[in-house]
Design a protein around this nucleic acid. Structure first.
Lengths: 233, 233, 233, 233
DNA sequence: GATGAATGAGGCTTCATTCAT
DNA sequence: AATGAATGAAGCCTCATTCAT
């Protein structure tokens, strides 16, 4: 298996082949379990060449994160056409997102699962890209509010929280869709729109769900734990 | 650091100490990066004893998943009191969930980050528990629909999708809350209720967001990719 | 070859065996050319055990330097009995030195050749020990001067220079003796005593060799000399 | 950094550039730690060219040893003008030696530190050149004895030992001078002349330091002595 | 005359795991 | 019930060296 063993390729091409192999391996095995040996073999190249071009396992992983992160961000931006009304933009952005994550499951695994689990440096790398997307979604929500002539009393901070929740839900749905055969991007997007958009619309109309008073030890009760020696983990 | 070095403890106690140490180490370092050496030292025990009681690294990790998974499931179930109306049950279940994940961040990391990243076996273990919770939430939503005497023909499959989305959003929020100092469980729960409940309510009232016709190459357009040799990864 | 493969030794013993093997290998192959594999095999032990006890190649090398340096220093000190007149002390100190370097050629190679050639850290380690010996020799020379009632006009700084030269000559002779079969420690010591002691004696008597004026480009002198009027030392 | 990248130089020039880079790298990093990559880059040349001209790392190192050895030998010979009296010849030869080693510290390191530490082949290469110098010094000492009309029966073997000691002391001083800022070649030469010449002079006048009888196990004396009656040299 | 592309081999280090007590 | 002593296997990385142009 692996790329056909073609000799003497220009550096730029070989580098992409290596990144392809790396994304696939990292995505499937995980950062630590992926071995440089396997990546090199999958890329159809000897290990020293990987090091010559990509420096180290860490750098290789970072390069994967950057490439996949950029690709995802651009896919979403390209999906959400600026001219449309905000709800349509959100819809098409989400569709683009689910389409991309479905087409590049390993890239998505690298970004969403691996990069966040193996060191601050990697986590920061994706956090920056995620922040971009959250900001983008925040703008969409604000635009939607403007379109509906309702902006004045929507605190920015709350909108950010909603954007966070929306993006988080989308991420979870992407994982779920990738793990569940037969779910299309459109279905995922529709589910999320139904779930979220109506909620947002109502929120903007002033209706909200009101939490009850804190009524005692309901939620915190550690009571009969399952084993655990020390109180905190 | 680690447990005080006391000799000759009964087996059950020692085992819990080991699991404590393992959950902490796995949660912070990740499955692969966690070394049996570190776990044994943190547990205040020699390595052979860990093997004597827990057999292998895989078994140890599985034991962690089981213990933490059970603890989380039970916390949520205990939080959602059967007698209350469905929305209150959901609220208190979510609060219990966020409280638990905040109190046991390493356990949560083991379940949500590590177990899903290191092999089918572990992933299956958590998938089962997650399915339980999704089913539980599905029941709550259906109950809420019944309570409101609405939409008796809501297709089960769609409700499942909503439950998935809700649970996914909760998971994302839990990660986010653990990474953001100063966010309480009640705040997380309120954010999610605001975001979701209204949406659900409207959905049940019959209003829904309607996806547009699939109008061409909007979402799929891979067009100018960033490098990538083969079209799919 | 290598130590007989005896199982289950106490740690202290195994450590010495490892150091023995390491000194031999480092001394003969050089620091970089010596492989941990070879050392472990010569020690009759698996590589992981070497790492468990000695941490890293650098630490192992440092341990070698320390052990051999201490042994040499102590051999010299033990050789030069305090009660004797200074010249006899010097003689017996030198004899002890040459005896030790002849008996432990690998240790001597580690100290004199390898440690000085592979990084500041190692060099500093031996420099400290060498300084001890130079100081010791300086004391002997001063004592000899006192014995001869000649001290008043011997500048300390000059004596240090002489001690440096003496120690340097001894080191070179030790290398030479180790490379030349049939040279005994007593012979080396006698050569050096003859060479040096008489010179020192005359120096103390006030006679010195006077360098000629700088007579042009004969020696390739850089031109920009320090400009000292008195050309001495 | 490194040589300015000029294309198409005649072979002889390129070779010298490579040797320059090699001497510098070998001198500073050591034989094993020096990489062909670094040497090629410092020479401003691609690696295959280095191999084309100099064949292998071993050959390159040998070429360095030869070039630097020849340069040093010639510098010393050129310094010691044949017409002068022996002591003056020694003085100017030493000055030339210290001047050269100070001007070419990397070359000196290659000869004195590296070549002797990495295999018989290299060591033999320098040993031959060193032998030349020792022979030369031996001649000077004998000439000095003749000039002074003394001790016509000074055994050649003893004179060789003295020459060895003198050369060894010079080498040590050269290392020390290179490591100690502010020491000039003239100062080094003067120190050594003061230290040695007087000793030699006295030796020639018949005075010698007499080693005591071997008085027991003090020094650990090796036992098998040469059996000479006069225990000296 | 000169080089970008490529690799076999080997070194340092760590890990999960077991044995003998 | 518990551990000090020990190792096979594997991973990251670098290097001297060559091929094809």
């Amino acid at each position: 298996m692996g790329a056909v063993k073609t000799k003497r390729m220009p550096r730029a091409v070989r580098e992409q082949q290596m990144l392809d192999a790396a994304v696939r391996t990292f995505g499937q095995r995980g950062y630590m379990a992926a071995s440089m040996d396997e990546i090199a073999e999958l890329a159809g190249v000897s290990k020293p060449l990987v090091y010559l071009y990509l420096n180290s396992k860490e750098d290789l992983f970072t390069a994967c994160i950057r490439r996949e992160g950029t690709a995802l961000t651009e896919a979403v931006r390209a999906g959400a056409r600026p001219g449309l009304p905000a709800d349509r933009q959100l819809w098409s952005g989400l569709t683009a997102f689910f389409t991309h994550t479905a087409r590049h499951p390993d890239g998505w695994a690298v970004l969403h699962l691996q990069a966040r689990t193996h060191g601050e440096v990697f986590a920061a790398e994706v956090a920056a890209m995620r922040a971009e997307i959250v900001a983008f979604v925040t703008q969409l929500i604000l635009a939607a509010a403007r379109d509906a002539h309702r902006d004045p009393d929507l605190p920015e901070r709350e909108v950010s929280g909603l954007a966070e929740a929306l993006v988080g839900a989308a991420e979870s749905l992407a994982d779920w869709a990738n793990a569940t055969p037969g779910v299309t991007a459109r279905q995922s997007a529709a589910t999320l729109m139904n779930f979220a958009w109506a909620g947002l619309g109502d929120l903007m109309a002033g209706r909200r769900w009101t939490p009850p008073d804190d009524s005692g030890p309901i939620t915190g009760a550690t009571g009969a734990q399952t084993g655990r020696t020390s109180p905190v983990t």
